[in-house]
Amino acid sequence: MIHLSVGRFNIDIIAKIDSIPPVDTNHVTDVLEILPGGAATNYAVAVTKLGHSAKLLAKVGKNEVVKSLMEKVVELGVGLEYVEEVNEKPSMTLIFLRDDGSLSMVRKLGASILLTREDVKKHFGLFDVIHFASVSPNVVVRDPYAKIVSYDPGPYAKDIESINVDILYVNEKEYNLIKNKDIKARYLVIKMGKKGAKIIAETEECEVEPLQIEKVVDTTGAGDVFDAAFNVSISEGNDIERSLQMASVASGLKVTRIGGISSPTLDEVREYLRKKKPKVICK
């Protein structure tokens, strides 16, 4: 299977800090990293680690830091031939990471917001799965040749008036924003963090329990990894129960590591599932 991940390539700056130091003071931390990021980048890396092929469609600012970070993503197997360099500032995210793994973000959108629906249409017919990650609903378009078109709006959930995709991924807050809108989706997936996840399909509703993680390190990108694992599984013909279990395990393992691209491999997910499968209840 080949996936096209549509969205952003970010410079992620991750600093472990529970609060902003007062004026004229300083703070020493054991985590201060500059890593590749962006929801679409996290998704593409996760898909590749789970055994499928992935290419990223994005626009990036011409910048030496961006180039070095892109090399890391290429080394992980993601195709970047559809990433276009433009004369704009790079997209960046400053992530404040707390001891419990929770986080706050400050974003500078930069070149990433220049992506359009027409950019996506140029690649119709080339991919089995197209995933739109944290982009405006104006960019989302259904490829009639793709097996699966999925969308995780992230901060753009508030802008959705109508949408037509196979899979729509939201968290609980985003679900409250879109539940009365014109939503056409074969699967509506609601990610609930420590409470697991729920899927609303045409004929059933299923809920999966979360992994019990002893130490949550970093939740950056956990939702993107969930999306990737579910898409990988469902595109291979697995049922909802199996796909939810795979997504729950993959996203759960991710939060034990620093950075949005630190997703688990297929072998790691399978090894966990051999030992214990998350409980799924359908009705």
Score class of each variant (00 low, 15 high):
228 A>P: 02
56 L>M: 05
218 D>I: 00
15 A>K: 11
282 C>T: 04
203 T>E: 15
224 D>S: 05
128 D>K: 13
130 I>K: 12
148 I>V: 12
15 A>P: 05
180 N>W: 06
143 D>E: 04
174 E>M: 14
55 K>P: 00
203 T>S: 15
235 S>Y: 02
193 G>H: 11
81 E>T: 09
96 F>N: 07
216 V>P: 00
64 E>T: 07
268 E>D: 09
229 A>R: 01
117 R>H: 00
41 T>C: 15
200 I>T: 04
191 K>V: 02
232 V>F: 08
27 H>D: 01
24 D>V: 02
146 A>I: 06
263 S>V: 04
183 I>A: 07
129 V>R: 03
99 D>W: 02
7 G>Q: 07
143 D>T: 11
105 M>G: 05
81 E>P: 00
99 D>K: 14
120 V>T: 04
101 G>I: 01
157 A>F: 00
11 I>E: 02
114 L>N: 08
151 Y>S: 05
230 F>R: 02
40 A>R: 00
225 V>F: 09
174 E>L: 10
202 E>K: 10
208 V>M: 04
195 K>Y: 10
153 P>R: 07
194 K>G: 11
275 K>E: 14
27 H>K: 12
255 V>C: 11
141 V>P: 06
118 E>A: 02
127 F>V: 07
62 K>I: 03
124 F>H: 07
66 V>E: 07
125 G>P: 01
226 F>Q: 13
124 F>S: 00
44 A>N: 03
90 P>Y: 03
173 K>E: 15
173 K>G: 10
73 V>A: 05
144 P>N: 11
248 S>I: 12
238 N>P: 08
131 H>W: 10
88 E>M: 13
140 V>G: 08
3 H>S: 14
230 F>Y: 09
178 I>S: 09
115 L>M: 01
190 I>K: 02
78 V>P: 09
108 K>D: 13
236 E>Y: 05
239 D>K: 05
106 V>E: 09
232 V>W: 01
121 K>M: 15
120 V>N: 12
266 L>A: 13
272 Y>D: 07
267 D>A: 11
210 P>A: 05
257 R>H: 11
201 A>R: 06
236 E>P: 06
132 F>L: 12
209 E>A: 08
125 G>D: 11
214 E>R: 15
46 A>N: 04
222 A>I: 00
94 L>M: 15
3 H>I: 03
222 A>S: 14
254 K>S: 12
266 L>D: 09
